[in-house]
Design a protein around this nucleic acid. Structure first.
Length: 270
DNA sequence: CGCCAGGACGCCC
DNA sequence: GGGCGTCATGGC
């Protein structure tokens, strides 16, 4: 990754990043595609820090109206720009299906998201589809001045007061998560640092958090790249291409491989 | 109308 | 331990 400051913008060059593939592949739900004179422009937030970012060509980007310090301390980390994704793709190319998935959408990166926001987002995601997940999260933030509500704010709600979300049976799960995190009963930063099995078990104590949601929180909210969420799409990939199991050589970064496969099977094979 | 969606829970055996 | 009905909501 290279960058230079130009006025109030940061001009970034990173060959292994594509905004459409990274911001609209089902790992994050708060980025909105805007009308744009560039290839594409997205606006969104990391926790409460807003950003508008454009892709101006293959591997070239403008991070609008941000300082060098904010870029280096926040956005480099969020977009995982200090990690060399070509190394992952070279490793994955040993497997035929993974190789095709990487060729199809080589600009996917694993965003380093906030663990609390991930927990809530993926509780909402269960037995749900991506457009409706985005709608529920939109209403949740809209009701909080545009910011994602923290655990203490959300812990003051009840399933009844959350009716405006139209999140259905998931509302009681959100309340339980908020109550546990705001009281300290669930310590997300401790879970992020814990051995993986211990972390899984601790997350699954939250009502509405089962194996799939726990893996998503570990992968997307805690950057545990060995976590491997299995939803209906990945089930199809495993059944069709990996009947003998997922390749061992990719296990340490199975979650990153999973992102390429998820996007590939959902949009690349139609 | 029925089927599906980045599933989990409660109950049954 | 595995199997199955149920849980809201909305798009197709």
């Amino acid at each position: 990754m290279d960058y230079k400051v130009k006025g109030r913008d940061i001009i970034v060059s990173e060959p292994d990043l594509d905004l459409d593939e990274t911001l609209d592949c089902g790992q994050a739900f708060r980025w909105k595609k805007m009308p744009s004179d560039y290839d594409c422009t997205y606006t969104g937030r990391f926790v409460n820090t807003p950003l508008t970012v454009s892709q101006t060509g293959k591997g070239s980007f403008i991070f609008h109206d941000t300082t060098e310090e904010e870029f280096l301390t926040r956005w480099v980390d969020y977009f995982d720009l200090n990690t060399d994704y070509s190394e992952f793709k070279r490793c994955f190319s040993e497997d035929e299906t993974l190789s095709k998935a990487c060729a199809y959408a080589g600009g996917i990166r694993l965003l380093r998201q906030d663990s609390w926001e991930c927990l809530i987002s993926f509780i909402i995601s269960q037995n749900n589809n991506i457009p409706r997940i985005k709608g529920i999260i939109d209403r949740l933030c809209e009701n909080n001045g545009g910011d994602f509500p923290d655990a203490e704010v959300l812990s003051r709600e009840t399933p009844d007061t959350l009716a405006y979300l139209r999140s259905g049976f998931r509302a009681k799960y959100l309340c339980d998560a908020a109550s546990r995190v705001s009281s300290g009963e669930t310590d997300l930063s401790a879970i992020a640092a814990a051995p993986i099995e211990e972390a899984r078990a601790e997350l699954k104590k939250i009502l509405g958090v089962g194996p799939k949601v726990a893996e998503c929180v570990l992968l997307f909210g805690m950057h545990r790249t060995e976590a491997f969420p299995i939803d209906v799409w990945i089930k199809r990939v495993l059944a069709e291409y990996y009947p003998g199991g997922f390749p061992e050589f990719a296990a340490a970064n199975a979650g990153i491989a999973q992102q390429y496969l998820f996007h590939y099977i959902r949009t690349g094979l139609k």
